[in-house]
């Protein structure tokens, strides 16, 4: 028994072949176009709905755009990842793949990278539309200023509008949206290695997503006043460790209102997300490597 298979056997060529194929598989799914269309409709239509808002139009556009990107990238990652393993197992394509010199680690990593590629493409497309919407609104605002302001005051006002439209911290905000979707996809992959049905995987993943968003608030409420019992503290610590605090990714809300995102905070959140992705993936590998096919 000393010749056991190395669970982390690695070939970048095989991983790339698997991720490329997974990407092709996911791009052909109807749900991809359906969700992307919805995201496009929401981001695009915000250009018209903003006229009925009393808030700063650019801020509303950013709120709606970043919010839609966050929700739809998460939903896309969730729905695409949940069915990856069960489908390959049901169709027995998994047997044909693993009967080649492909380790389960490579297979799982290839599948996850395929999902990441899809998420990257989706977020890129949504970002381009978002940038287009912002540019159109910017031109509308400038045209309105030109009508209302005297020529000598115009350049300063235009510069102010331009600075408020394309702030540099939109980019780290979008990067965090992508990272959050990647984290939730990795979690879904882990759940799909444990579950026997994709419906269960989707439901559990949604529950974990909700827990991830409220756990920070719950933690503060339970531990307030220093009266919490040791058992409750252990439970809270366990929950904080098992489920990522997804509220941390809501720095995007601050970005939407124009608050600058400190570099340190960005890297802290990115490091936090990256660490959870790594831990969830290693757990998924651990479960999948011992699973009977």
């Amino acid at each position: 028994m000393n010749q056991a298979q190395n669970p982390f056997s690695l070939s970048l060529r095989r991983i790339w072949a698997l991720s490329h194929n997974t990407f092709l598989e996911l791009v052909r799914l109807k749900v991809f176009y359906f969700l992307l269309l919805f995201a496009f409709l929401i981001i695009g239509s915000s250009l018209f709905t903003v006229q009925f808002s009393f808030q700063n139009p650019l801020q509303v556009l950013k709120d709606v755009g970043l919010g839609a990107m966050s929700i739809f990238s998460w939903l896309l990652g969730l729905l695409c990842t949940a069915n990856l393993l069960p489908k390959d197992m049901e169709d027995r394509t998994l047997y044909t793949i693993l009967a080649k010199p492909v380790s389960r680690f490579e297979y799982l990593l290839g599948k996850l990278y395929g999902v990441f590629l899809l998420l990257g493409l989706s977020v890129l497309l949504m970002s381009l539309l978002f940038a287009g919407v912002l540019a159109i609104r910017e031109q509308q605002e400038i045209a309105e200023l030109a009508r209302n302001l005297s020529p000598e005051n115009l350049p300063a006002a235009v510069a102010e509008i331009r600075a408020a439209t394309f702030q540099m911290n939109l980019l780290p905000g979008i990067a965090l949206i992508l990272l959050k979707a990647m984290l939730c996809s990795t979690l879904t992959l882990l759940l799909s290695t444990l579950a026997s049905s994709s419906v269960f995987t989707v439901l559990t993943s949604v529950v974990v997503y909700l827990i991830g968003h409220v756990q920070g608030i719950a933690r503060e409420a339970w531990l307030a006043g220093g009266q919490a019992s040791p058992l409750l503290k252990v439970l809270v610590a366990g929950m904080a460790l098992a489920f990522p605090d997804l509220q941390l990714f809501n720095v995007v809300d601050e970005i939407a209102v124009g608050t600058a995102l400190p570099a340190l905070l960005f890297w802290q959140v990115a490091g936090f997300g990256g660490m959870y992705i790594l831990v969830y993936f290693l757990l998924a590998q651990l479960v999948f490597s011992t699973r009977e096919l």
Partner: peptide
């Protein structure tokens, strides 16, 4: 159990399914 054992093996499963989009 070693990945290398499959370097010289070809396998055809019963009623094979492949990716239909390829």
């Amino acid at each position: 159990r070693r990945v290398e054992s499959r370097e010289n093996v070809g396998f055809l499963p019963e009623n094979p399914y492949f990716y239909k989009y390829l």
